[in-house]
Amino acid sequence: MAVLTIKNLAKTFNVGTPRASRVLDDISFDVRGGTFVSIVGPSGCGKSTLLNIISGVEEHTSGDISLTSDSGGPARMGYVFQDPRLLPWRSVMKNMMYVQNDRSEATAGRCRKYLEMVGLTKNADFFPGQLSGGMQQRVGIARAFAVEPDLLLMDEPFSHLDAITARGLRAQLQDIWAQSKKTVVFVTHDVVEAVELSDRIIVLQPGGRIYEDITIDLPRPRRQTDPTVATLQAEVLGRLEAMKTLSRTPSSAAA
């Protein structure tokens, strides 16, 4: 069953002003429950805008979005940002509890479970300022999983980290995802990362249209060292080479 359905979605910033700019154009796709979908595209092509529209932080100009939830109530969403976005004046555990809808012992237990999955049980009472950037980002990931979202949105969560930390976190994310089977929409500009993590990659091109929709059919867990992963990464990269020439045409100035 589709958790997220998007039909003919378009977004124009500053509608009706001389500065009006179309960022997303005629986007349609749906995301089946329990799948990991990546949105890939060059910087500025509207990926973050798309996520913000899905999460409801941003309004869209035209088209339809529908979300369904398991519970039948309003769909619950989790969000992992590029930066950790933790409250600096709250401990790690209190940050996890802040985004929860209730303060029950069961909820606290769930928060502790996800903290354990990212290996931060010992740091539950630390303030964010006492953790490294990578650890803070892990709290951000645990926080988003711990709300048990119907849809988990991630916006380039590893792009601010060094390569070694990012690699470790990608592996950890795969493990957590394998255990929780959440529906994930993951934004990245890194095709290699997308191939490693996703069941499916939706490629956006400058100007905010869908360029390609690629299914990644590889066994999990996937590791960087696995040659079949590397081969597929090279192949997808090759297919996107064509977009580079496309992006240089005058019609798509957004790049």
């Binding site: 619950r76 940002f81 976005r85 409250l87 985004v99």
Partner: peptide, 16 residues
């Protein structure tokens, strides 16, 4: 502002 956006994305109320 980014903390406010975070809070909204997780459905926190204005009072929270």
């Amino acid at each position: 502002k980014s903390l406010v956006t975070m809070s909204e994305a997780f459905g926190r109320t204005p009072q929270q």
